[in-house]
């Protein structure tokens, strides 16, 4: 069993009173709670803090912890010979157990004994993020998820076990959407109902499309002459290329809607695909292009900044 220094984790002295322990825990919990913190390492850190607090806040567990002696964090150790007799049960193996599970198990074991044996407990709910592609969202997919979860064995003792399971995500997913899979969480004990699995769907970024709900956004680069004269251009969609009519006089930033070419929705219908116009000029001009642009510049009366002058004349107050 690997030693964890719960006092060091909470940043308190070994003789700290319960109030100081509670205060230290709350301060750290505010910082690292996975529902508050955006720190990707926050969840692991919070678990460590919570484990430390669960043990040190309970005078009985704290006494049991103190009697394990002091070791270096991460160091393999065995509890003193009479420790198991005093606090746990003597059948317990200390080799494959996590320190936190051992202490959670202490209370569980005693509660179970008090009730005279068999107990019923619902399985735990799991929440996990499933990363899928846009194609997966369109067609539905099966994901394989790996999770380290605490599970009770038949004696009611907690063990942390690696679980790998498959979950079917029906079509209709989009980024940030949640899915509840009934009974796919932790196994219930003694006839208790199985827990649920809550999936948070995260879409991998796509090279072309950006996602908003079930709508997709695509940048549509156009030449100045396509934008001015109008054109029919080929646009990629999730179900293959389609032809899009660009009306004459299209300007940059304009959104051209391709109805029902977005992501499929869970029950029925699809989102839309929006092509956002960008007007792009060649960075290097051929002689011929330069001559044509020059001719256009000389011959055109178009002034895109006419409103600057008008607004200033209308007496926009100078600051």
């Amino acid at each position: 069993m690997k030693y964890k220094d719960y006092y060091q984790i909470l940043g308190v002295e070994r003789d700290a009173d319960t109030d100081a322990i509670k205060k230290a825990y709350r301060k750290l919990a505010h910082k690292y709670h996975p529902d508050v913190s955006k720190d990707p390492a926050g969840e692991e850190k919070f678990k460590e803090i919570a484990d430390a607090y669960q043990t040190l806040k309970d005078p009985e567990k704290r006494a049991a912890y103190d009697q394990l002696g002091r070791h270096k964090p991460g160091q393999d150790f065995q509890p003193p010979p009479d420790w198991a007799k005093q606090f746990g049960d003597t059948q317990f193996s200390f080799d494959d157990v996590d320190l936190a599970d051992l202490f959670a198990g202490l209370a569980g074991g005693r509660r179970q004994a008090g009730q005279g044996g068999g107990f019923k407990m619902p399985g735990q709910d799991y929440e996990i993020t499933a990363h899928i592609t846009l194609d997966d969202a369109c067609r539905g997919t099966t994901v394989e998820l790996n999770l380290t979860v605490p599970e009770y064995d038949q004696h009611g003792r907690l063990h942390r076990v690696e679980r790998s399971f498959k979950a079917r995500i029906p079509k209709g997913a989009t980024d940030g959407q949640r899915l509840r899979l009934r009974g796919k969480g932790g196994k219930g004990v003694g006839g208790g109902a199985d827990g649920d699995l809550y999936l948070n769907i995260a879409l991998h970024p796509h090279a072309l499309y950006r996602v908003s709900g079930h709508d997709l956004y695509l940048d549509l680069p156009l030449t100045p002459w396509e934008a001015a004269l109008g054109a029919v251009v080929e646009v990629p969609t999730l179900n293959g290329p389609v032809h899009l009519k660009v009306p004459p006089g299209t300007h940059a930033g304009q959104k051209l809607r391709l109805a029902r070419r977005g992501l499929p929705k869970p029950t029925s219908g699809e989102g839309d695909l929006y092509a956002i116009v960008q007007i792009v000029v060649p960075t290097v001009l051929s002689e011929r292009e330069r001559a044509l642009f020059k001719e256009l510049a000389d011959g055109s009366t178009f002034n895109p900044r006419g409103h600057f002058e008008r607004e200033m004349k209308n007496g926009t107050p100078a600051s």
Binding site: R168, P170, G172, Q177, R178, L179, R180, L181, R182, G183, Y198, P266, T267
Partner: peptide
Amino acid sequence: ELRQADVVWLDAH
């Protein structure tokens, strides 16, 4: 029916 269905999208619908 949230309790009965095996797979439910938790959205506004």
